[in-house]
Design a protein around this nucleic acid. Sequence first.
DNA 1: AACGTCGATGTAATCGATTCCACAAGGAGG
DNA 2: CCTCCTTGTGGAATCGATTACATCGACGTT
Lengths: 338, 338
Amino acid sequence: MASIKDVAAEAEVSVATVSRVLNDHPSVSAAARVRVLAAVDALGYRPNAVARSLRTDQTRTLGLVISDVLNPYFTELARSVEEEARALGYSVIIGNADERPELQDHHIRTLLDRRIDGLLVSPTDGGSPQMLDAALAGTPMVFVDRWIPGLDVPVVRADGTGAVRDLVAHLHGLGHRRLAIIAGPAATTTGSERVEAFRDALAAYGVPLPDVYIGQGDFQAESGRRVTEGFLDLPVPPEVVFATDNLMALGALDAVRARGLRVPDDLALAAFDDIRWFVHTDPPITAIAQPTGDLGRAAVRAVVDRIEGRAPASVTLPARLVVRSSCGESSATNRSQP
Amino acid sequence: MASIKDVAAEAEVSVATVSRVLNDHPSVSAAARVRVLAAVDALGYRPNAVARSLRTDQTRTLGLVISDVLNPYFTELARSVEEEARALGYSVIIGNADERPELQDHHIRTLLDRRIDGLLVSPTDGGSPQMLDAALAGTPMVFVDRWIPGLDVPVVRADGTGAVRDLVAHLHGLGHRRLAIIAGPAATTTGSERVEAFRDALAAYGVPLPDVYIGQGDFQAESGRRVTEGFLDLPVPPEVVFATDNLMALGALDAVRARGLRVPDDLALAAFDDIRWFVHTDPPITAIAQPTGDLGRAAVRAVVDRIEGRAPASVTLPARLVVRSSCGESSATNRSQP
DNA sequence: AACGTCGATGTAATCGATTCCACAAGGAGG
DNA sequence: CCTCCTTGTGGAATCGATTACATCGACGTT
């Protein structure tokens, strides 16, 4: 592959001049510029990003470590992150943690070794040594969706409390009184926050959230299935299950179906995170939708702000309830079952 | 960030010795080794991958350019690719083309600039100059899922002809005679191949595939919706629509639903690419499943073979039909409608 | 006419690793 | 006791860029 030396030789100038033309430095004569450009063209020369990064100490690359690529929420996030980054002249390297802390660490380490300029993380756990090191070592970093309390790192996330309140109002209005939740890992903020929001919203109606109605999931479909089966085996099963992510909702659906039961008649279902397929499931699923694209874009702007020396800001955007028919009744009229 | 020089100073050896320890070169004394390791530990030193790549002319990185991250098929592919690559000691950088040739080119160019060791591509078009250059310039390259005819590049893909034949048998058995297809872009192999397979399978039953029953889509949901509306507006609409990817099937479902019609009674539906949600859609969707994980792994092994000097082989794996209820009747018994 | 300024260019240092080569010390073999 | 080989080590070149510094005309000013 042609190097800058080859271009210099071809254009009969020094490598310095070639470099100047490429980085359009002002003091280059028009004549030299055309000769260099012609040489670049003739040789099909492309600057070696590796060499450039070594010298300039910047890679114009962002690392994004997400909890699970197979979760549509995160792939949408990844897409918007890449889009905004590209618009700002950065590339993105995605690391998929698969909800496993050790994999997350592997990716953070690898990304740091590559000297990425900034890091976007949606942590799977309460904070591994790797991540703390990264934060401490001064690599510009921003948390997306989930975060780790106590670290001085900006957070870009959606606030679901209002939407959860709306959801509980909706469920209560439909006459449901025994409400259960499938929680995510307690080590994640989204895991615990959503349970809190749910509990608080129920409290406003004087409805308790007993421990047996709190199932421990891990944001994966299988755990949603397992927890839902547990609920159905209870002496007094819940009337509604609120899955705190879309994959666990899928698992819940699997469990209900396996028993030959029906949603919402035998068990109503709602989910956190709205995805396109929820419109076409049987029945269409009521969900809380996050402004995913906005989150991704805001997160990129935040890291880039830090990278380029501006002060980055945390961002919190509201989520909203999307009512469909998986909790019973139609969406428009809130009458209780006949 | 600490460099190899700092480590050398701390351990009171030369940088050469540090490098030897790090790459466990045989001739280093035990004493030197422990001193270096201690220094590495004390400084929290991690080798700069950028510098290393510049010197060794290898990045131990694979580029993967996929057509659309929002398509679950491709995200599953990406996941298995990353997994296998990691097992072989490589990292993966994913580029999302969003089915847009110019974006695909952008990513290929960026990846090449970064001097990735190998490239995995699922081309969105018939072959851009970028891609040809990459192939010609000798960057180890493998096509996954889709490919470009006439290039001497190994292809790892699923063969759907058998499954399509099974699908047509299933549909014919159910009494369907007016079968339509939503094709992908003609420039992609999967776009044209699936239509051919469908046409051939129909021919075996003496059923024609008229042009009006071939809708032109682009592998995105919106095109599936549009094409399906067109079908429904026909004087003699088809009885079945076969969407050649899962997103267009989603669009088709949208279109049917928007008209207040039902699947399969008013229009039966089948799709290429099976995804988890198809089990829970209303109705569950009959689909052709690809061995996605196997494809991803095989593709990685193929590029790595080329990178490491072995001869890479093309791989073709069979897809299989998964019958559900979106085409009418039950899956087990193939009797025609009562 | 002498001098300072400015634009265009080249030389060489530099980034952080790897690796070739030279060299010293020590052991084996004659 | 001398040579030869092996082992461990350091110096320095190298990868492909960027950039500080030096140089050299040409030009304008006094």
